[in-house]
Simulated scan of single mutants.
Amino acid sequence: MLILSRKKNESIIIDDNIEIVVTDIEEGKVKIGINAPKNVDIHRKEVYKLIKESNKEAAKSDRVDLGSLGDLFKK
């Protein structure tokens, strides 16, 4: 893990196109801003974990009967 010190309004650049900016520091909390391309997903870690777990559960669901699936497309 790389650990960097930054002051308010200072930033870090990642991979030439992601900027992390320290926007505020107060009462033991740091607020950051993130400038990144729209195709880059950004989540808080706890939300990211929930998304991953949800995707794993969805992948475990019962297999679909292909015959029944074909019925959905019949007019």
Rank of each mutant, 00 (worst) to 15 (best):
I18V: 12
M1G: 12
E46T: 14
L72H: 06
F73D: 05
N55P: 08
D71W: 09
E46P: 12
K7S: 11
I12D: 03
I51E: 02
N55Q: 14
V21T: 14
V22A: 00
K56W: 08
V30G: 05
I3H: 11
S61G: 14
K74I: 09
V47M: 09
I13Y: 07
K29M: 11
L4N: 11
V30R: 05
L66F: 08
E19C: 04
L69V: 06
I13E: 10
V47C: 05
K29A: 10
T23F: 00
D16H: 05
A59L: 13
Y48C: 04
A58I: 13
E57G: 11
L66G: 05
I13S: 11
D71N: 14
A36L: 04
K8P: 01
I13F: 08
N17Y: 06
K7Q: 13
D41L: 13
K56D: 10
R44N: 15
A36N: 02
A58S: 12
R44D: 14
H43G: 04
I3L: 12
V40A: 01
L69F: 10
I32G: 01
R44A: 15
Y48L: 05
E57I: 15
N35T: 06
I14M: 04
V21D: 08
K45R: 14
E57S: 14
K74Q: 08
E46D: 15
P37W: 02
P37D: 04
L66H: 07
I25K: 02
S54M: 11
A36Y: 02
I12H: 04
V21L: 14
N17R: 08
M1Q: 07
N39C: 06
D62P: 10
S5H: 13
L4I: 13
L4R: 11
A59D: 10
H43T: 06
K31H: 11
L2Q: 12
K75N: 13
V40N: 02
L66M: 12
N35H: 09
D15W: 07
S54C: 09
L72D: 04
S11F: 01
D65E: 04
S5I: 10
E57F: 14
P37G: 03
N9V: 03
I20T: 00
S61M: 15
D16V: 03
E10F: 00
I14A: 03
I25A: 00
L4P: 06
M1C: 08
D71Q: 13
V22N: 00
K38M: 10
N9T: 03
K49M: 09
I12A: 04
S68F: 10
I42L: 05
K74V: 10
V64C: 05
I34M: 00
E57K: 15
I32Q: 02
I32V: 09
K74G: 06
E57N: 15
E19D: 04
K8L: 03
S61I: 15
G28S: 03
I13K: 10
L72V: 06
R44F: 12
F73T: 05
I18Y: 01
H43Y: 12
N17C: 08
V40W: 02
R6I: 00
E19T: 07
E19R: 07
K60A: 10
N9R: 05
L66E: 11
D41N: 15
K60E: 11
V47P: 02
K49H: 09
K52Y: 05
I12G: 01
